[in-house]
Amino acid sequence: MRMIALHLAVLAVLAALQFVLPAYHHTNAARIMVLATYAIGFNIAFGYSGLLSLGHALFFAGGMYATGLLVDQGGWQPWLALVAGPLAGGALAAAVGLLALRTAGPAFMIVTLMFAQAFHLAILYWGRFTGGDEGFTLSGAARRIGAFDLADPATRYTAAFLLFGAAMLGCLALARSRTGRVLVAVRENEERTRMLGYDTFRAKLFALALSGLISGAAGATYGLMFGYVGGSFASIQYSILPLIWVLLGGAGTVLGPLLGTALMFYLIDWASSVTTASQFVVGAVLILLVLFAPRGLLGLVRDHAMRRLP
């Protein structure tokens, strides 16, 4: 009960923040919430189920491009395209999973990396439709859903908040559910889980597809909110970023993705203001985390203070 209250309190703070934040941080907060949703999606595969994918950009960008292309070139209603984005992410993840989940460990990492790389290259190759590396911008009409205009900062913040809130509460429910318990068991010891009568392949496929669905939802929303769809979102960089966010905040925790995304966002923001070598920070954080805090910040909290943190 206390744990549910804690998570609701975090959401309440996020809802209240929009009234006090100055414009710059207001936009940042909206961006962080959408990216943290992506991190939540990644965390369901990596943190809860032990599936370390290096190709999640495929699902994020897949959702973004599905929605963006449908609304920009397919002439779909924005709300309908926004529904198609997550579905595209989920379907891509299921398709990748059917193949990649026959492997494990480093092979799984390389296979997912290669599929994402092929998708990135495909976006560059079919530049006539996708705009190649530069991508394309979305018109004002494409970003209006009914009476809500996503170009308006307040609406944008609300949309980001709703998306993040839904993903976070969904993740919380999953973590406390029977399915969540099975996913954790698969992460801890797959062979033992199988001998308890669970089809672990199906469990992992479910986790990856759900992870892809949430990642796709984040990508689709990001595209509509900021009016831009670009090739860089499909690059390996965007597969590594959610890994960093989740590692930093704490893999297998509900709040870790938000904490990690926000910290990393402002760390890079700060680093770029004092030095041009912001990539250095990314690399250093990765190495320091695997060396000294492989369970992340909330992992430390869980180990030492709140054992029941979901």
Partner: peptide, 24 residues
């Protein structure tokens, strides 16, 4: 039948080397 389906048929196996989930 794969192993997990046999468990559902009613065959349970307790491991030789203790293999509970230590972190749960």
């Amino acid at each position: 039948l794969p192993a997990h389906a046999r468990v559902r048929c009613g065959i349970a196996y307790a491991f030789q080397i203790t293999s509970v989930f230590p972190r749960l």
